[in-house]
Computed example of a mutant assay.
Amino acid sequence: MIRTPADFRRIAVALAGAGSMISVVLIAELLLHWPFYRPMYGTFGLDLGSPLAVKFREGNMRATGPFIEATIAAFCLTFTVFAASQIRSAFTTKLFHLGLMALLVAGVAAPQSRGALLGLAVGFAAIYLYRRSQTVIATLLVGAAVFAAFFVTVGLQPETTAPADMHSSETIEYRKRLMTRGMEEFAKSPLTGDTFPNILSRMQDLRQGEGIVDFVNTYLWVALLSGVLGLLLFLAAFGTRLFHLWTLRPRLRKAGFGPGAAAFVFASLCAPVVMLIFTSFGARIPMLVFATFGLSTALLTAVRKGRRPREVFVAVGPAAPDMRVPPRAGSFTRVSE
């Protein structure tokens, strides 16, 4: 059960630890051009077909690690960065914490997913907005403008035949065609959508070199399958949780929580809203998104019930002001740093 600040702290520490190990693998794959996990599927007789293809961008291998696809690897790793950013007190020195953050960000960059990098920027903006750090918010807004200009430039650049740019141009062109064809199919049944086999059979003209129709826009995919009604419900799943987390801020300290735990969950909900524009809703992505939904519900329940456990400081050890508020004088046994 997830009920106390200590529970959220343990989850954040576990995510940061798992993310650091995956980051090492991803960085090594990028530097060595060696997909460590790909041969394992053949060894155990798992034939996944085209998803096992090794992809390159600008001459560099897109690291996948234990994931099927590079974009999925980067998507999942962004959550570990948000978790690690809110557990400064778990490290003996600030330098160690910054070192871990640098390792995790490098891990997110290794798969070379632009959507994940944009999600990372949005997530950090959400964290500082939630914690009301005005200076950092201004800096991140400027950074967001730079990112937006970059994406617009990439989207408008003409096609090129240069080998280094060929894959990027093909990707951009495919996304444009997917959106155009998707909207045409959406117009045929805008309210409730259609079945996946019917949609797939009508969009065979988008079948690419891997032999699949890749729905690299989750919102378009949801709209095609469930229409406007389904898309609104999908967006509401994010929107309602973000709204309740935002309105929860004044009650965090009263319930024994600092802003760190809520900021971590808030960022983990904001980032996917952006990243799902650039990827499909498959493999481990739904698992992680739904787990984040559950984490937000647990946090809302714990704060609303006002649990303030007396064992938190003793169980965790050194005080963690970023995840909890200090106890009132005389309320707890003091633990020395």
Rank of each mutant, 00 (worst) to 15 (best):
L120E: 05
A126V: 13
A138L: 12
L141S: 01
L117Y: 03
L129T: 13
A126F: 00
Q134R: 07
G119C: 09
L120K: 01
G143Y: 03
L141R: 00
R131A: 08
V142I: 15
T139A: 11
L118D: 04
A121D: 08
V136M: 06
L118K: 06
L120Q: 07
A145M: 07
L120C: 06
G119M: 06
Q134G: 02
L140M: 15
L120G: 05
T139K: 02
A138Y: 13
I137L: 05
I127E: 13
A145Q: 01
L129I: 11
R131W: 07
G119Y: 09
Y128F: 12
A138C: 07
V122R: 00
F124C: 04
L141I: 15
G123M: 09
A126R: 00
G123S: 09
I127M: 11
I127N: 06
S133I: 14
A126N: 00
R131H: 03
G119K: 08
A116I: 05
S133M: 10
A125W: 15
Y130F: 10
L140H: 09
V142C: 06
Q134H: 11
A126T: 12
V136T: 13
Q134S: 04
S133N: 14
V136N: 04
G119V: 12
A116W: 09
F124W: 12
A116T: 07
R132G: 06
T139N: 07
Y128L: 01
L118A: 01
L141D: 08
L140E: 11
A125P: 05
V142Q: 10
Y128D: 10
A116E: 02
Q134L: 13
Y130T: 01
V122K: 09
L140K: 10
L140G: 04
G143F: 12
L120D: 08
L118M: 09
L117H: 01
A126K: 03
G143L: 14
S133H: 15
F124M: 05
L141A: 02
G123V: 11
R131P: 04
L141F: 15
L117Q: 01
L129S: 10
I137N: 00
G123C: 07
R131C: 05
A125N: 09
R131E: 14
L118Q: 07
S133D: 15
R132T: 05
A144L: 11
G123H: 00
V142E: 14
Y130D: 12
A126M: 02
Y130I: 00
